[in-house]
Computed example of a mutant assay.
Amino acid sequence: MGLNTQCNVTDKEPAEMYYKDFDDNGSIDPILCFYIQHKSYPYITRDELLDQMSTMRPRFPDYNSYADAPINVVFTPEEMKGAGRLTANYLATACFISNGKNNRLLNATLPPQAQYAPVFTTTTLDYDKDGNTDLLLCGNMDHTRVRFGKYDANYGVLLKGDGKGKFSYIPQQTSGFKLTGDVRSVMEVNGAYLFGVNGKGIKAYRQ
Results as ranks from 00 to 15, higher is better:
25 N>D: 15
116 Y>S: 10
72 N>V: 00
66 Y>D: 08
174 T>H: 11
66 Y>G: 07
77 P>N: 13
176 G>K: 01
56 M>A: 04
110 L>Y: 02
9 V>M: 09
194 L>M: 13
95 C>P: 00
116 Y>M: 05
143 H>E: 13
195 F>Y: 15
92 A>V: 02
20 K>R: 13
10 T>C: 05
83 A>M: 08
28 I>K: 03
103 N>T: 04
156 G>S: 06
109 T>W: 00
133 T>V: 15
131 G>T: 09
153 A>H: 13
133 T>M: 12
103 N>D: 15
148 F>Q: 12
54 S>I: 09
68 D>M: 10
153 A>F: 10
28 I>Y: 05
6 Q>Y: 13
17 M>Q: 08
129 K>W: 01
25 N>C: 06
22 F>K: 06
128 D>R: 06
60 F>N: 05
186 V>K: 03
108 A>G: 08
39 K>N: 09
13 E>Y: 15
24 D>R: 15
176 G>P: 03
172 Q>M: 04
136 L>E: 02
69 A>E: 12
194 L>H: 15
102 N>K: 12
63 Y>N: 14
124 T>P: 04
50 L>W: 03
54 S>E: 14
79 E>N: 03
134 D>G: 07
85 R>S: 01
141 M>A: 05
164 K>Q: 14
178 K>W: 08
7 C>Q: 09
182 D>E: 15
25 N>Y: 06
204 A>Y: 01
41 Y>R: 03
23 D>N: 15
130 D>Q: 10
124 T>K: 09
160 K>S: 10
142 D>Y: 12
31 I>K: 01
26 G>D: 11
96 F>T: 02
114 A>W: 02
4 N>L: 01
174 T>N: 13
82 G>C: 07
84 G>T: 03
78 E>H: 07
44 I>Q: 10
1 M>K: 08
146 V>W: 02
157 V>A: 06
22 F>Y: 09
131 G>F: 03
11 D>V: 10
178 K>T: 06
161 G>K: 04
110 L>H: 02
73 V>G: 04
35 Y>R: 01
49 L>F: 11
113 Q>D: 13
173 Q>M: 04
76 T>E: 08
140 N>H: 06
198 N>P: 00
129 K>E: 12
179 L>T: 08
159 L>E: 04
155 Y>W: 06
74 V>A: 07
181 G>E: 02
177 F>Y: 09
140 N>G: 08
34 F>L: 14
168 S>P: 03
20 K>N: 11
156 G>M: 08
14 P>Q: 02
147 R>F: 06
136 L>S: 06
131 G>K: 04
106 L>V: 13
